[in-house]
């Protein structure tokens, strides 16, 4: 009996949908391939460049996703909302969901789809060839798929190790106890890059300084990140750093104990301005400008772009509370990384 009633529900709903589909309703989503290309062509001629952004976390994670969203917004303010249109999807941690969203954006007239996470790469390689008029971008990676004949994917790579290096120099200059605590999420990807750079920066500045590294095993475990910060402080650390959205917990503890915090990726000073003494932020605006310019010049993809100190894609924001000598050393490191006189040596941990 239950089976029958469920069947009825199904029939009813499918019937409703079919009836609805028959009616000429202008729904922005859905629609076939033909409609999509039309929409794309229309958007192209109409003027504004339409950018879609997919993120694994949220636009207010004060790290990875926020940095990209903020840059897009800044660019929009600069160009005007009539020239740049933004759409975004958050919390796309599940890759197949993200793949569906990428396809949807591509088929509903967006000109540039940014898949802001390395895990989306393989889906992108599948999807991009179906939409030659749309550009795609993803990172952290150097893979554009050009070797497979795909021409419309940009790859980007923020040099997290550079951001980590400068932060490391700064930390080594700031510490008096010669112990620094690092609160990481998971020892992989961008977080690993940051840790490696940080260790190299500390070592290059003062080989006697010890960096205690801990990982919480997740990107969102704020409570454990807080306790990790507590542990670092008890173990003698007088400067703390870390990455991912979980760090808000650690920053709270740093604030309570008056221990300086050095942020990465996004400007983390909102969380506690008095102790977040520097943030090595990812500024994507120039990279986005470059991609848009290349598109307009007819290059749909195939290029690898980097965020570095050299191209201004990574900037460190220094607080006034920092000692001048420490800032100088960090700025020297920035310059050295920019002109190539400093190379980062990653040692196995």
């Amino acid at each position: 009996m239950r089976k029958v009633s469920w069947g009825l529900i199904l029939v009813l709903i499918v019937g409703l949908i079919l009836a609805a589909c028959a009616a000429p309703v202008a729904a922005p989503a859905g629609g076939g391939q033909a409609a999509a290309t039309e929409a794309a062509a229309e958007a192209e001629s109409a003027g504004p460049i339409r950018v879609a952004l997919l993120m694994p976390s949220t636009i207010n994670d004060i790290s990875w996703s926020q940095s990209m969203y903020v840059s897009l917004k800044e660019l929009q303010d600069e160009l005007g909302a009539d020239k740049l249109e933004i759409a975004y999807s958050e919390n796309m941690f599940n890759v197949p969901d993200a793949a569906a969203a990428i396809r949807d954006y591509a088929s509903s007239g967006y000109n540039l789809v940014i898949a802001h996470g390395a895990q989306y790469g393989d889906s992108l390689m599948d999807i991009a060839p179906d939409f030659p008029d749309v550009s795609f971008a993803w990172g952290t990676t150097t893979r554009t798929g050009k070797d497979q004949g795909i021409e419309n994917i940009f790859a980007y790579e923020p040099r997290g190790d550079q951001a980590g290096y400068v932060t490391g120099v700064l930390a080594a200059k700031l510490t008096k106890s010669k112990i620094i605590g690092l609160v990481g999420p998971v020892d992989a990807g961008d977080a690993k890059l940051h840790v490696d750079g940080f260790l190299a920066g500390v070592k290059a500045t003062d080989p006697d300084v010890k960096v205690n590294v801990s990982f919480t095993g997740s990107f969102g475990d704020t409570a454990l990140a807080a306790e990790a910060a507590n542990t670092h402080i008890r173990a003698g650390a007088d400067v703390l750093t870390g990455s991912a959205q979980q760090v808000v917990g650690a920053i709270g503890v740093a604030k309570e104990n008056g221990v300086p915090w050095l942020g990465v990726q996004a400007d983390q000073s909102t969380a506690a301005p008095e102790i977040v003494l520097a943030s090595a932020i990812y500024d994507w605006t120039q990279l986005l400008r470059d991609i848009i310019a290349m598109r307009e010049a007819g290059t749909m993809g195939g290029e690898v772009l980097q965020l570095t100190y050299a191209n201004g894609g990574i900037r460190t924001i220094y607080s006034d509370a920092l000692p001048a000598e420490a800032v100088e050393a960090a700025k020297a490191a920035e310059a050295g990384l920019a002109d190539g006189s400093i190379t980062i040596v990653v040692e196995p941990r």
């Binding site: 069947g7 859905g30 969901d97």
Partner: peptide, 27 residues
């Protein structure tokens, strides 16, 4: 019963992603 139930619930999840994408509401 799980067949139509997971079909409908799956649809809810898929549709919700489309909704976020099209109407631009927070997830």
């Amino acid at each position: 019963g799980a067949i139509p139930a997971s079909f409908l619930f799956g649809g809810l999840l898929v549709g919700a992603n489309k909704m976020q994408l099209t109407v631009q509401v927070p997830s």
